[in-house]
């Protein structure tokens, strides 16, 4: 598994200095705190979490758009965290990004053609090559050639996100980081973009890092999923295992909170968590989730659990996960059937 990993993130940390009023009370906040994972070529790896969990900062740090204070990110043989200046700029053709809001991520003064052609500027190629490339990529995202001359404000949200995807695809990157690519779109349009992402992956064998807060979307598109809370990964698992037996109490609560669209038949009730996530400025000494955990034990407040690795490559940070004779379970929460007991 490790040998075919395309993207490897090791112990990534991003710190922000937050100033209090009048510049006093300087705090250093770890928005991303020791995040490690790897993505296999051609897979879609999802990061879910709520606002403030550090999922977007992780994406931006991998993209080298915010500075990582610690850790190593490598894409194939290339160590991204070691690249600087011109070398980094040239390496960017290998990893591109699609942003959340297609209304703000496209330069309003450029025509669709020029928006998409922007990353080609670093490739030192002839305009004729570029023209062929542009036509191909427009077709791949389902836009017509005559739409290339329009300006962003003349497109609908879904079409704008197609342009953004074309811009990310045009250099034929190996990795595309998608930061909430459908959450700013109208419900009916989300499916168009999700299915397009899937089709492009099938056709071009591109790898996605997919950031989202929407568990339904993540389940639909991701092969592996990491759950983040307060800058740390609390659980990483393949899709099938995560949604059939979530091991971390936070994953369980998160899943239970999603409303189901089939009335009367909903198999679970929401676990209502107490309060809100603590501030990153003073993290609890024990498990970061202890304060809100529905099954908190005295031990949880004393020592932080390690992110232990289980036999199928799955990892979880909870004191009460056990693996016995090939079956894993959380001794406190049990499986999914426990959701209704905990509410």
């Amino acid at each position: 598994m490790i040998d075919q990993a395309l993207l490897t993130v090791q112990d990534l940390e991003v710190e922000f200095a937050s100033k209090g009023a009048l510049g006093r009370n300087k705090h250093v906040v770890k928005a991303v705190n020791g995040v490690s994972f790897s993505i296999n070529k051609g897979d879609t790896f999802g990061i879910v979490g709520e606002s403030g969990s550090g999922k977007t900062t992780t994406a931006l740090a991998i993209m080298r758009l915010v500075k990582a204070t610690k850790g190593k990110v490598s894409l194939g043989d290339m160590v991204l965290t070691d690249l600087h200046g011109e070398a980094l700029r040239r390496a960017r053709r290998q990893f591109q990004m699609v942003f959340q809001d297609p209304f703000s991520s496209l330069n309003p003064r450029l025509r669709a053609r020029d928006v998409v052609a922007e990353p080609l500027a670093m490739l030192d190629r002839s305009n004729k090559d570029n023209a062929r490339e542009l036509e191909e990529v427009f077709a791949q995202v389902g836009l017509r050639p005559e739409q290339m001359d329009l300006f962003p404000h003349q497109f609908s949200g879904g079409q704008r996100q197609r342009i953004a995807l074309a811009r990310a695809l045009v250099t034929r990157p190996e990795l595309i980081v998608c930061d909430e690519p459908v959450s700013a779109l109208d419900v009916a349009i989300q499916a168009q973009i999700l299915n397009l992402l899937k089709r492009i992956q099938r056709d071009l064998d591109v790898t996605y890092l997919f950031i989202s807060h929407d568990l339904g979307v993540v389940q639909y598109i991701c092969d592996w999923i990491a759950v983040m809370y307060l800058g740390q990964i609390v659980e990483v698992a393949p899709r099938a295992s995560l949604f059939s037996y979530p091991l971390h109490p936070y994953t369980l609560s998160l899943l239970s909170a999603v409303p189901s669209a089939s009335p009367g038949t909903k198999a679970w009730k929401a676990i209502t968590l107490k309060g809100e996530p603590p501030s990153l400025i003073n993290l609890p000494t024990g498990c970061i989730f202890a304060d809100r955990c529905p099954v908190m034990q005295p031990e949880c407040q004393k020592s932080p659990p390690a992110l232990q690795e289980l036999s199928d490559g799955r990892r979880v940070a909870c004191h009460f996960v056990e693996e016995k004779e090939g079956t894993v379970q959380n001794t406190l929460t049990g499986g999914l059937e426990m959701i209704n007991v905990l509410t």
Partner: peptide, 22 residues
């Protein structure tokens, strides 16, 4: 700080281009 400027940075264009053209 707008997203399309970040998007330009992410796509690997030069700094001068970002200041004067974006």
């Amino acid at each position: 700080n707008l997203e399309y400027v970040t998007a330009s940075r992410a796509s690997g264009v030069r700094q001068g281009y970002i200041i004067w053209r974006v």
